[in-house]
Amino acid sequence: MAAHKIAHATLKGPSVVKEICIGLTLGLFAGGLWKMYHWNEQRRTRAFYDMLEKGEISVVVAEE
Rank of each mutant, 00 (worst) to 15 (best):
K54R: 15
K12A: 13
V59Q: 11
K5P: 02
L28Q: 02
E41N: 11
L11F: 03
G23V: 02
P14L: 12
T45I: 08
A3L: 09
E56K: 10
Y37P: 05
H8L: 11
A30K: 05
L33P: 00
Y37A: 15
V60F: 04
N40V: 15
Y37D: 13
W39Y: 12
G23N: 13
V60K: 03
I20E: 01
G13W: 04
V61L: 07
C21G: 12
A9W: 05
G27H: 02
Y37V: 14
Q42T: 11
F29D: 01
F48T: 13
A2P: 09
E64T: 06
M51V: 03
I6Q: 04
M1Q: 06
A30Y: 04
V16R: 15
R46Q: 13
K18D: 14
A47S: 06
Y49D: 09
V61D: 02
A62T: 12
L33A: 12
M51Q: 15
K18M: 09
V61R: 05
T10L: 12
I57H: 07
V60I: 09
G32S: 11
E53I: 06
L11W: 04
A62I: 08
A3G: 04
I6E: 05
I20D: 03
H38F: 15
V59C: 09
Q42C: 05
K12R: 08
E53Y: 14
L28E: 03
G27Y: 00
A9C: 00
S15V: 01
N40C: 11
H8Y: 12
G31P: 07
A9S: 07
R44G: 03
E41H: 04
R44P: 01
E56V: 13
A30L: 13
E56T: 10
E41W: 06
Y37F: 14
V16E: 00
F29Q: 02
R43V: 09
Y49Q: 11
V59L: 13
S15R: 12
S15H: 10
H8W: 07
G27Q: 03
R43K: 14
D50E: 13
G13H: 09
L52K: 14
C21D: 08
M1C: 07
R44A: 01
V60D: 02
M36I: 14
S15G: 06
S58C: 04
L28W: 07
Y37Q: 14
V16D: 00
L52S: 06
T45E: 15
W34C: 13
A62H: 10
K12Y: 04
T10W: 09
T10M: 11
P14T: 11
V16Q: 08
E19W: 03
A9Q: 10
I22W: 09
T10A: 08
G32E: 05
K18E: 15
K5V: 08
K12W: 00
G13C: 04
L24I: 07
I22E: 15
D50P: 01
K18C: 05
A7T: 13
G32M: 11
S58L: 00
L11T: 06
V16L: 14
E56Q: 10
E53S: 14
K12H: 07
V60Y: 05
W39R: 03
E41V: 14
